[in-house]
Design a binder for these strands. Structure first.
Length: 295
DNA sequence: AGACAGGTACAAC
DNA sequence: GTTGTACCTGTC
């Protein structure tokens, strides 16, 4: 995609960008380390850097960075090479997706770091977003590298596999991850001590990569598909959480459809774009509470 | 008080 | 293969 990129005083300004809304991007459930500031911008940590993202009119302003970092990191991180408009046209042939796309029009799927996503989504199992976020912040503060101060706050990188592999399980539980502590510890040890290589798994096709990821304890069908989609560029992955299950049953299938059937249905219907469809549907369902049983 | 929240492991059929 | 249940923790 062609954008007009300019650098100015520790900022990178992107003009002419479409399909980019920080609220949609950072609150659609794919990431846990971005927080909204008082001015409506978002500040977050990725690749051992602190970044602030703000939209003004048709400009996206990335603060605390420069052109070199933009080219090396943020362009891919924000998936700026992809034409979301074209994809949204395809999705709009489906009446349900058309509404979901309208609702989450500025969603983009981030290209995040595999180890961070592996651990983060292990922690996400049967958990709630605010608690997942606070646990990950505690983990980063205790075991991650201090990467500096921005706007009066201190920031820490997500811990490495090496760092986490050396923490014992009881101590890990102080980050309030509960029964998932043993899975986190085990995953870190596999990556650091046992030579399990996430970058290699990323090179496999979706089916084989999923098989390898499911060998981690605490990684089942849903978590593995999140890792594939959010950190391994496997856009045919179709993670089914409670919200996706609800909206698929509500609009496309009938109640009490098994996970396997929903998975098959989604993959066959949306094919190589299943991951994007899932993300629009998830955000739409969760924000509107679609399919949630009323009390 | 008790259910519930971005599922998974494990056992039982 | 498919189904049922326990599970850390904090908030409603």
């Amino acid at each position: 995609m062609e954008y007009n990129i300019t650098e100015d005083n520790n900022k990178v300004i992107i003009e002419g960008i479409r399909d980019f809304d920080p609220v949609h991007i950072f609150e659609c459930g794919q990431c846990f380390r971005w927080n909204r500031e008082e001015d409506g911008s978002f500040t977050g940590v990725a690749f051992e850097r602190v970044l602030n993202v703000k939209v003004e009119n048709d400009k996206v302003i990335l603060s605390n960075t420069n052109i070199e970092e933009f080219n090396n990191i943020w362009y891919d991180y924000f998936d700026l090479g992809r034409d979301y408009g074209k994809m949204k046209e395809i999705f709009s042939q489906d009446e349900i997706l058309k509404e979901a796309v309208k609702f989450g029009s500025g969603i983009r799927i981030l290209n995040q770091e595999p180890f961070e996503i592996l651990i983060s989504f292990i922690i996400s199992a049967n958990n709630a977003i605010p608690r997942i976020k606070s646990s990950i912040e505690r983990l980063s503060k205790r075991y991650g590298k201090h990467i500096g101060e921005y706007n009066g706050k201190e920031y820490y990188a997500f811990p490495t596999a090496e760092a986490l592999s050396k923490v014992d399980i009881e101590e890990l539980k102080e980050t309030k991850i509960g029964f998932r502590a043993k899975y986190v510890s085990n995953a870190a040890k596999k990556v650091y001590n046992e030579g399990v290589n996430l970058d290699y798994i990323k090179t496999l096709d979706t089916t084989h990569a999923r098989e390898e990821l499911m060998k981690f304890q605490g990684v089942g069908p849903k978590v593995s598909d999140c890792i594939l989609l959010f950190s391994m560029e496997k856009y045919e992955a179709f993670p089914i959480d409670v919200w996706v299950k609800r909206i698929m049953e509500y609009f496309y299938l009938k109640e009490d459809t098994s996970m396997n059937k929903i998975q098959k249905y989604g993959e066959e219907k949306f094919k190589d774009l299943a991951g994007f469809a899932q993300q629009y549907l998830f955000y739409y369902a969760r924000e509107l509470g679609i399919g949630k049983k009323k009390k």
